[in-house]
Design a protein around this nucleic acid. Sequence first.
DNA 1: TCGGTTCAGAGTATT
DNA 2: TCTGAACCGA
Length: 798
Amino acid sequence: MVAAHAQVRQALNVTQGAALRLLEQLNDRQREAVTLPAEHALVLAGAGSGKTRVLTTRIAWLISTGQASPHGILAVTFTNKAAREMLTRLSAMLPIEPRGMWIGTFHGLANRMLRAHHRDAGLPHTFQILDSQDQLAAIKRLLRTLNVDDEKCPPKSLQHFVNGAKEEGRRAGAVEAYDEHTRRMVELYAAYDEQCQREGVVDFAELLLRSRELLARNAPLREHYRARFRHILVDEFQDTNTLQYEWLKLLAGESSVLFAVGDDDQSIYSFRGARVANMAAFEREFRVAHLIRLEQNYRSHANILDCANALIAHNRNRLGKNLWTDAGEGEPVRVRESLGDAQEAQWLVEEIRSLVAEGWMRSDIAVLYRSNAQSRVLEHALFSSGVPYRVYGGLRFFERAEIKHALAYLRLMENPDDDGAFLRVANFPARGIGARTLESLQDQARRSGTGLFASAASVPGAGGSRLAAFVQLVARLRADTQALSLPEVVAHVIEASGLVAHYRSEREGQERVENLRELVNAAASFVAEEGIATGTPANLGVAGGPRPASSTVAQAFDSRAGSTVVETDASAAPGAVQTTPLAAFLAHASLEAGENQAGEGTDAVQMMTVHSAKGLEFDAVFLTGLEEGLFPHENSIVDPQGLEEERRLMYVAITRARKRLYLSFAQTRMLHGHTRYNLRSRFLDELPPALLKWLGARPRPVPGPGGGPASRWGATSASISDGRGASDARHEPFARSAEASGRATGWRVGQNVAHARFGEGVIVAIEGSGEDARAQVRFEREGTKWLALAIARLEPCG
DNA sequence: TCGGTTCAGAGTATT
DNA sequence: TCTGAACCGA
């Protein structure tokens, strides 16, 4: 402790000047936020307003003015990327090692705490973390064990139920069940938790829930952390769920200062439990004295911002903010209507090509879409034209099957009770342990109340001896790697398990072998980044979890074991224990799934969903598929809250663009095997017409069977097939598209209707024309139905 | 144990 | 329409 303080004070002299210089670079509002007194604060940070900068400068300022030591800081984010970003910027600002700080994701920090206090948390010190995939597998296994019908209880829905309950901070016993089905789910939830406990594994939500329970139950520990973390800083506060907010409250107590940064207008994750209401709750419950708005935007030109402002003003539920910039108005926002999704894609390719020809970098161009399914058509067009692109999302490194297999061996070595890992690799590579053998093993284990590993010896017959051989293999792996460093362990295991040999003999296994070798590298960089001394055996305790602490080594007294242990963290929490590099690496693999695709360095067009674009920015942004039913998505149209979230999503999309923004929609689109006629998104109509520039000719609609569409269009389409008159289209930008169906049927998407039998609802899609025209109607009571318009007697209403 | 066929489902996603 | 998962036969 003494050493740490001296270190800080020494750093101070160097730092103070630097931090003051950093303050000079901030605008008034930012500086006000950074230099707030040590009281709870909420910073409403608009898109591109320098949120991360404020957060990191605040930390640097607290430290350099001596108000806090690195050791007293806890900063929490949602993604590893954000945590890394914060750490990187911080080390650029401060000449001191930021290691004493707790900077990380909610899950990463919870994991760190549970590792250090696993006994108090009721976990084995080798506990493993299940990612979503592992969790689903565990649930399927549970349902099979309990002979629960898959039809009655789909594994995915149980997973959803369990995670939902945990994210609300509820154990099975605390879930209110008023109907039979819910009662059944609650029972299964309890059984799932028992299974996890037996196997020494925790899922993502469990990390936080356990950590919260630990703090709630263990007063000395709670007081220790409260006394330690005088400053708690939270990024993207609007995304916190109930459990995360409770965790923060427990950690902050009366003594700590909470500094929360967020933007209610960018709350787009309610579907995964995020509660914007936490912002208001925070303000109220903590009697927040300082509410600061960051409204100056450093990213986009004014036309783009004004569109964003105008759009979001249509939302009722917001704290209120208006972005501005001094960057100049810039170009108008371009709007493009296409006949169909293929034509939209083709136009996109041509536009991108001409941008590139003008000197724009492909990597500065983003193509955004509402749902992943839309990417295929776009990819196809880009691919056929040879435009390099990169799609975000998809399989990440640690999620690959071969990597999962290797990790399963490592997990089994670390924790033999991990039945999920056992089942994953007992017969991979194939060693003659068939489904029947495994079934009898599972029966055996159930009878004796032990894990699969422990029961493996007692299965009779040939299957039994093969099981015994597998158990021996794992035991040998463990014995042979005793003195090896982590990368060496990984290298040994991928060979000795037979994984490398197996994939090498496969026709298309070369890439998988390379991935396995890459896992060794990943282990090596992990060791390097975590500051684990080279050559440290992988099973030797070194640190309190991922991102272990500074080199200041303090002696801590382990109250339980009564022995003195080395804790590298300068603070010794009561009863804290160390963890091994292997356990830390396995946790790291679960908590950070890694990159999803190679080719990051190449100059490629960036393709992603609007959700994954949050936090990013690009010179040029193409926002595609702006159609009713798609964006806003039909599942959200009926519910006002849902519609507001869609609008926020659109707001996020618009504010990604620095210089140029394209908004694009198509009259028809192939969806679920049907051609759908969609109206353009209502969000387009919520933008100020004066800021928009309509591109190209009004496309001619698809001729329908019911006669000449040309006559319908001739009168209104002055600019048809008149390429020169591109901007003339602005004269009539709001004649709705897709009249092909709209006029022919007399109905439109979004219209409220009533049906004699089904009651009231809203039209979410229209397809076909003439006698074949059908409308998809979402009824308030009866769900969504397709109705033939020639037959069903719909009445307009509302 | 693999490979083909069938069938359901189809929103957004981090840890 | 397309995809992934599950199931069945060789």
